[in-house]
Computed example of a mutant assay.
Amino acid sequence: MRSFTYRSRCSGEVRVLVNYPHADELSKLLDKYTSCMIITPSSVSSLVNFSKCPRIIIKDGEEGKGIETVLNIIKQSMDNSLDRSGVMIGIGGGSTLDVTGFAAAVYMRGVDYVNVPTTTLAMVDAALGGKTGVNAAGLKNIIGVVKQPSEIIVDLAFIKSLPASNYLDGFAEVLKYGVTMDKGLFDKLSSNVDKVMNRDEGLLEDLIYGSLVNKAHVVEADEYDTLGIRIVLNYGHTIGHALESASGFSISHGKAVGLGMICESTIGVKLGYTNPDIPGYLTESLSELNLIQSIKVNADSALRAITGDKKRNGGFLNLPIVTELGDWVKVRVKVDEYLRLVKESCMYLA
């Protein structure tokens, strides 16, 4: 069991608990609140070992991430007398936590919320940071706010039930933290793949804790993504998101980000910033974690997605570029130049 806190300019201290039983911690937490609601998808509800709060069951994944889901959460919260001194508790993957955070931000002008991530990806990434978003008008994450959870409870017991592919998907994000900010974390993951495959609890605690500490440092420094520091969390995502979109989301997020990191590091080499060994380090580690997928997507679709990337500023993209393992710089690249480099460097465009 390990814990730490990070500070939010708006919300004060956020407590992060790694490898704590969720039921025990939620019981302690409720002493601070007058009422509570649990928001969880149907696939997870049977694993939630806590009955002291009413439950709202939502759909899994993107299906449950629409503005209609938020309106349903608000109605059921009102029906169950959740007041402004109450708390919403999201228990699920990243989509569930996004919806819970957004609903908490707008319900009665804001109530506290707690994140209990149940997937590896949510444990190392989505649970921390405060970015919430829901889909509307056919657009992904078009409505959202930044609101930090009051507490994050990572219960490793949820990992036991994850299918192998779902379990491994989150380790692309762990590699991202390592290659950009923390060489020790990168080395620990890369040299202990056998333990990862066996779901070794001690190693998982170390990797998840290290990932969250790294992300928390970035969030503290640039909570509202205005200083150009938080873009490091998007390493591999400019191309990764484009691959997801162009493939019709037939590739998982972790695998898309993994391929994105390989391509972005290759571009970094061509631009003269990145150590030429970095693409090979990433390829080897991702391959050992079964996070390399053979895929071909339509080049025009992928390039259109990159053109619309949120890091675009006029005719330029502001991008995080790795220099050495554990170090990065922000680079401003012309959009047209970047698209040319993507076409040259990414072998999975057809």
Rank of each mutant, 00 (worst) to 15 (best):
P320D: 12
I89P: 04
M1P: 05
L341Q: 10
R340C: 06
G248P: 08
S345I: 12
F102W: 07
N290V: 05
A299W: 05
C36H: 00
V70R: 08
I306G: 08
V213Y: 01
D83G: 07
L203I: 02
G86S: 00
N318H: 15
Q148E: 10
L303H: 06
T40S: 13
Y107A: 01
V145Y: 11
E324A: 12
S27K: 09
I67D: 02
P41F: 12
G130E: 04
N290H: 13
S43F: 12
K215H: 13
V174W: 02
V193Y: 01
E63M: 12
I251N: 06
I39C: 08
T100K: 14
N318E: 15
D169H: 03
L212F: 00
L139M: 10
K195W: 05
M78P: 08
L271M: 12
D327L: 11
G236W: 06
V48C: 00
G92F: 08
G228E: 04
A299M: 06
V218C: 01
V342K: 14
A302R: 02
S165W: 06
P320M: 10
I267G: 04
I231E: 07
C263Q: 14
G61A: 11
L289I: 00
L319T: 12
M123L: 07
A157N: 02
V14L: 02
P54T: 01
L82C: 03
V329F: 03
L168E: 03
L291K: 05
L291T: 07
G258M: 10
R84Q: 10
K270S: 13
K255L: 08
Y209N: 07
I39R: 02
E151V: 05
M78L: 15
S46K: 02
G326W: 15
N234W: 06
L156N: 04
W328N: 15
G170S: 01
V342I: 15
I159N: 03
S43C: 09
V124K: 06
V297F: 08
Y20L: 01
D300A: 07
Y338V: 10
V106I: 14
E13Q: 14
D83S: 10
S77V: 00
D336L: 10
N198E: 15
R340N: 11
G86F: 02
E205Q: 09
T323K: 09
K131F: 11
S77D: 06
Y177N: 14
E337T: 05
R15C: 02
I57Q: 12
A242K: 11
I321V: 15
N275A: 15
K140L: 00
P163A: 01
A221I: 05
S345T: 13
R332W: 09
V269C: 15
G272A: 08
E201C: 04
S95P: 01
F50C: 06
I159A: 01
D309N: 08
K75I: 08
D112V: 02
S245I: 06
K296C: 14
V297A: 11
R332I: 12
P276T: 15
I306N: 03
A302Y: 08
S161K: 11
G272W: 07
